[in-house]
Amino acid sequence: MFSHFHRITKAAVFIICVFLAVIFTSLAFPTFERVHWYRQIIMTLSEPPQKVLSWMGNSVTDIWRHYISLVDASKENDLIKVQLAEANRKLIECEEIKKENTNLHELLAMSATLKLNGTGAHVVASNVLAEFKVLTIDKGYKDGIRKNMVVIGPGGIVGRIGQVASGEATVLLISDPNSAVDVLVQRSGARAILVGTSTSSELKPFFSLSRLEYLRKTSDIKNGDVIITSGLDKLFPPGVPVGTANNVELTTTNIFKAADVVPFVDLSQVRDVFVLK
C-alpha cells in the first residue's frame, strides 16, 4: 500500500517538475520567434479537428446566410443601390461646390486687390445668336446692378453689364463684336484697344478670343505679354488682368500692329462672376 502511494507521489513530483521546467523555459525565452515545441505539438494535434469543425461551421453558416436567411436581402440590395446612387450624387455635388468655392475665393481675392466692392452672381444662360457674345446673370436691378458696371471672373475681366432686368442682367463679354476696352501691355506700357472679334480662331470650339487693335507700329509687344486694363476709358478700373497677347503682326495698312488676346477667363465656360459697383 505504502509502496503504491510512494510510486504515485514520485510520478506526481516528476510531472510537476516537468511542468515547471516547461513554464520556466517559456518564461526564459519570451521573444523566441517560433512557438515552443510543446505548443507546436498541441497545435499540430489540434489543427485537423479544428479545420474540420471550422469547415462544418462555416458551411452551415454559409448555407443559412446565403440560401435560407435571404428574407430581406433583395430589399437591402435595393436600399444599398439607392444609397450608392445618393452617395455618388453627393460626391458630384461636393466636386461642384469645391470648384465654385475656388472660383469665389479667386474673385474675392481679386476684388480685394483692386480695392473695389461688388456682388457675386451666377451665369444662368448664354446668348442664342452666334453673332453676339452675351451672358445672362442671376442678379438684376433689385440687386443694385446697373448698366455698364464692370464684370470680372476668376482670373480677369469678363465684360460689362448690358441690359438690366429686375432679377437678371446681360453681360456684354470682351469677345463681343460691340465691346471695346482701353488696355495696356503690362511689360512695356504700350496702349491699345481691345475689341471683341478675333479673325483667326473664331471657329475653334470652346475658344473665345479678343483682338488688340490700334497698337502703334513702334509699340513694344511680343507673344505672351500680359494685357491689363488702362482705366483711360473711364469705364473699366485700371490694372484688371485681361489676357495674354498672341500672333502679334503688322496690319495690312502697315500703320498699326495687331494681336490676338487669349483672355485669362475662359469666357465660354465661366459660371461665377463678380460685378464691381
Partner: peptide
C-alpha cells in the same frame, strides 16, 4: 439653346 446646347456643335456654328 441658351443653356445646355449653347456651344453645340461649336461656339460659332449653333
Amino acid at each position: 439653346e441658351s443653356t445646355w446646347l449653347n456651344s453645340f456643335p461649336t461656339n460659332s456654328i449653333r
